[in-house]
Design a protein around this nucleic acid. Structure first.
Lengths: 234, 234
DNA sequence: CGAATAATTGAAAAAGATCAACGTGAGTGG
DNA sequence: CCACTCACGTTGATCTTTTTCAATTATTCG
């Protein structure tokens, strides 16, 4: 198989979306809101590969991811399972929904989250308007993530898509060690494929291509080392 | 050219996203907010194919689309122009941004919009908390549109993508006549291609395919009639 | 009317999907 | 602790789809 040319220019539109970029940790939130939310929330732990909520269920709760990682996916009518996003600590889940969840949330590793009853948050927002700011900020984060996702999916080749994905992923401090340049993948080949809109065979082949062309070095299936060559693909 | 099989099952996930679905007109908004916003806004008319704001410019204003249609696009570093969304009356523009616009907005036809200074809206939101609700609602609408966009882009073939696009488009009362089943396209083949992540040649070929297989009937380049056959592709 | 822009069409090449076979490795029960 | 199992990952061969590049035809707008 001849796998297309190396992308020397990269389409990714990496401009600062600072305030909305989803990377903020709890430190960004004003302490008063946090303590208010803390009073009404339940702390929950979920093991890897468990479902937090399922598409179509009544959306009674919103969640705040404290640690770990999870996958948002959408079951389509034709049986495909589309991965809409991967979520990291600092992000909220379930804030976009109306009466029922519009998508499912599944843990990729062990997670730690805070659960808040939607109705409680709603009524509390009247006394603490900054809760609204927080919700707005989180929706912006989701929107920016969606924009990024769309940009990735629009890449002309699977190689471009995967490189873009890996470069985005390498911004996660929890799973990328900048010293050793080792990336710990918390998701399967199929998850990546369902996120980028391709088959898992293609994902696997592109990983192979990236290795033979010295963009990455595979330590094992879930640990890959980025080379300077892939990092300079701006 | 042999153009793949007819999609009998359709992946589109058409569940109700009622409150957030972007179809709401001004009637949905509480009259008091509208009158408040009306006091501080400027009414603007823009001819077809003009730029409302450009990616990277200071995001001083937010806009409320009253009539017409426009295209949100994003200039990528590799020179491609990605269409992120098409916007219809009732939708806000520029509410997701921070200091600068993260994307551009270009009119497709003559439009009529209301312009509000961002700082004014910000300070007014303190006295009128329902403005926050409005902003939240609009961000949800953007997010649902993005989700839909991602679903379309994930379709396995260009034919699936275009059929999904046309079926979505046929929900726009301004540009679809249910009696004659005629759809008036306000965007070019290239706009559609840039939205669905394909080349305009492919868009053109799929239109041809749909016509020869009796899914549509072309009246002219911008007017196509949907047949019962395409409408029953759920 | 004529120039510029948009859309169509063709032929060849590239990329990705599909289907099938085969490795690999983490976890489990004997 | 080891062998077994099953899910996950890789690889190959073939076929379909899409892109690319080039040429041609429509359409719009001054």
């Amino acid at each position: 198989m001849t796998l297309h040319n190396v992308p020397h220019t990269f389409p990714h539109h990496r401009q600062s979306c600072s305030g909305a970029s989803g990377t903020q940790t709890s430190g960004v939130l004003a302490p008063d809101i946090l303590s208010v939310l803390d009073r009404i929330c339940t702390t929950i732990r979920k093991p890897a590969k468990s479902v937090i909520f399922r598409q179509g269920e009544p959306a009674d709760f919103i969640y705040f991811l404290q640690s770990g990682a999870l996958r948002i996916d959408c079951q389509l009518e034709d049986g495909r399972n589309l991965v809409l996003d991967f979520l990291w600590p600092g992000r909220f889940l379930g804030i976009v929904e109306n009466d029922v969840y519009a998508w499912s949330a599944t843990t990729l590793v062990d997670v730690h989250l805070k659960r808040l009853r939607r109705s409680t948050v709603q009524s509390l927002a009247q006394d603490y308007p900054r809760i609204m700011d927080l919700l707005l900020q989180q929706k912006s984060a989701s929107l920016m993530a969606a924009k990024n996702h769309i940009i990735l999916m629009s890449c002309p080749t699977a190689t471009h898509k995967l490189i873009g994905f890996l470069l985005d992923y390498s911004k996660r401090p929890e799973y990328y060690n900048p010293t050793t340049q080792v990336l710990t993948l918390v998701m399967s080949r199929k998850d990546i494929a369902d996120y980028l809109g391709m088959t898992f065979e293609t994902t696997s082949r592109v990983f192979k291509y990236l290795e033979t062309h010295n963009y990455i070095k595979k330590i094992n299936h879930r640990q890959i080392q980025l080379t300077p060559q892939i990092l300079q693909v701006s």
